[in-house]
Design a protein around this nucleic acid. Sequence first.
DNA 1: TTGCTGGGTCTGTCAATGAGACCTAGCCTT
DNA 2: AAGGCTAGGTCTCATTGACAGACCCAGCAA
Lengths: 156, 156
Amino acid sequence: MRPTALDWSVDNCTVARAMEILGEKWTLVVLREVFSGVRRFDDMRVRTGIPRQVLTNRLAGLVEQGVLRREPYQEPGSRIRHEYRLTTKGFDLWPVLVAVLAWGDRYLADPEGPPLSVGHRDCGADVRVELHCTAGHPVTNPRDIIPRPGPGAHPR
Amino acid sequence: MRPTALDWSVDNCTVARAMEILGEKWTLVVLREVFSGVRRFDDMRVRTGIPRQVLTNRLAGLVEQGVLRREPYQEPGSRIRHEYRLTTKGFDLWPVLVAVLAWGDRYLADPEGPPLSVGHRDCGADVRVELHCTAGHPVTNPRDIIPRPGPGAHPR
DNA sequence: TTGCTGGGTCTGTCAATGAGACCTAGCCTT
DNA sequence: AAGGCTAGGTCTCATTGACAGACCCAGCAA
């Protein structure tokens, strides 16, 4: 009999681990801000309405996870401050953010349209997420995907 | 001066709205289960260790949001039960899930590898998320993407 | 000296999570 | 008919997290 999902267990699930970081309330909103070029505490707070304490926690958590780094900077006439920038690990969250954005835009936007879009730097056209297999075929129908146990699966 | 992120506001942000659904603890794990073919309450509970109450809430919430539907079924010799299946809106979350999975696999997997992979039904090759612009160019570098206000942006 | 600003901390309230016990409808066995 | 099993839940309660609002603090400027 072909193995089904019920034959392996999930205690080392990477989705759960990723969501422990990304799934906390506001985390992805913070990341969207940083991706949009907003790097400073107060700018984020004002734009998003995230409670101070929560924003403090999220930024600290993301720095701890290596998604953001905290960089000192100094504007003329001001004392030293810090801003938050993406690390490589953070930049690699683009597909996640774009995928969430696309889904949200399709199903949850106001009638007037979504407030944010993403464009290709070279040509300006909108950017979308697509699924492709490593053999190069585009995967258009969700039903063309089969989940299966990977190398780290624990049989039960 | 070119508009920056600071010039528009985000109270209608679709990322925040999407994360209100997807960002609750366990939601994406539940979805991964359903995508993997696990449709029944107890199977999910046993495989994932989600507390009963929370699983009840998540399933109800996802049904309410139209991501899952609750379908009656009857096995011979049993009474009528219900299982949870993806709606179209739910299927459209595939890119999100694959993107999260890919990121988690890259940065958070055990040394032995990730427990779950996804393959293309036709050729069996692994499926990945890729960013493309609508003009067809692949977008490989996160820095080639520029965020910008969309039609529903609220100027401040 | 006083005030402003960015980036916080402290406190108290309320909602959500998580662990564990308990419930229930229908089927099965005795 | 009595009792047991099972899937899919409630109920209770301790712990944690979110949120609002007040307060703090270092350095600059008037």
